[in-house]
Amino acid sequence: MGSVKVKLHRPLEGKIKTATVKREGEHWYIIFITEVDPKPLPPSEEAIGIDLGTNPHFLVTSEGEMVEAPRHFQKAEEKLAKAQRELSRKKKGKSGRKKARLKVAKLHRKIANQRRDFHHKVARKLVNRYGTIVHEDLN
């Protein structure tokens, strides 16, 4: 087996409690869970209400701010459709099919990562700015 290279996106802090090895397509990840002392945010008396999933916006705040949905899937739809068509034409068990399958998986992973990044950035911005965040729980 070849050498293993680990690239950390930030230095580890605290005592490592668990490490999980995960594979997504061809990519391998190690997820470390560490124990650190909490660092509280500065207190804020500001409160805000958010309404999620209002078309065409991702969310609307009680202050009237509208956050647009980035529509990552719609932007990648053509590439994804083409890759899936190519995959459907390949014969099962052939190396060309494996490559096409990995290409489709890579596109899906990219869309998922873009969505996760967007959600994290929006949530982080709200948490940093407001002390209380209220949202509706609608079915």
Results as ranks from 00 to 15, higher is better:
residue 107 L to V: 01
residue 81 A to C: 02
residue 78 E to C: 10
residue 37 D to L: 13
residue 85 R to D: 06
residue 63 E to R: 13
residue 100 A to R: 08
residue 58 F to D: 04
residue 107 L to K: 07
residue 57 H to P: 09
residue 95 S to Q: 12
residue 79 K to W: 03
residue 102 L to I: 09
residue 59 L to T: 05
residue 52 L to E: 04
residue 103 K to V: 03
residue 62 S to N: 07
residue 81 A to F: 00
residue 97 R to V: 01
residue 99 K to A: 06
residue 69 A to Y: 10
residue 102 L to A: 14
residue 57 H to Y: 15
residue 65 E to D: 13
residue 37 D to T: 15
residue 41 L to V: 06
residue 49 G to A: 12
residue 64 G to E: 02
residue 70 P to Q: 02
residue 89 R to W: 07
residue 70 P to N: 05
residue 51 D to P: 09
residue 37 D to R: 14
residue 101 R to L: 14
residue 91 K to S: 12
residue 64 G to M: 06
residue 88 S to T: 06
residue 56 P to M: 03
residue 69 A to N: 13
residue 91 K to R: 15
residue 36 V to E: 11
residue 88 S to N: 09
residue 105 A to T: 08
residue 73 F to I: 00
residue 94 K to I: 10
residue 79 K to A: 08
residue 59 L to S: 10
residue 38 P to N: 05
residue 109 R to E: 15
residue 64 G to F: 02
residue 48 I to V: 15
residue 98 K to R: 14
residue 73 F to G: 01
residue 52 L to S: 10
residue 95 S to C: 12
residue 58 F to C: 04
residue 79 K to V: 00
residue 69 A to S: 13
residue 85 R to A: 09
residue 100 A to G: 03
residue 61 T to V: 06
residue 79 K to G: 07
residue 41 L to W: 03
residue 57 H to D: 14
residue 85 R to P: 03
residue 42 P to N: 05
residue 87 L to W: 05
residue 103 K to L: 12
residue 63 E to C: 10
residue 60 V to F: 04
residue 98 K to C: 01
residue 66 M to P: 07
residue 50 I to E: 06
residue 53 G to F: 01
residue 60 V to E: 06
residue 59 L to V: 05
residue 45 E to H: 14
residue 53 G to C: 05
residue 71 R to P: 00
residue 56 P to D: 02
residue 75 K to M: 00
residue 87 L to A: 09
residue 62 S to H: 08
residue 65 E to M: 12
residue 57 H to V: 10
residue 81 A to M: 03
residue 47 A to Y: 08
residue 78 E to N: 13
residue 70 P to Y: 02
residue 49 G to D: 05
residue 47 A to D: 07
residue 77 E to A: 12
residue 60 V to H: 09
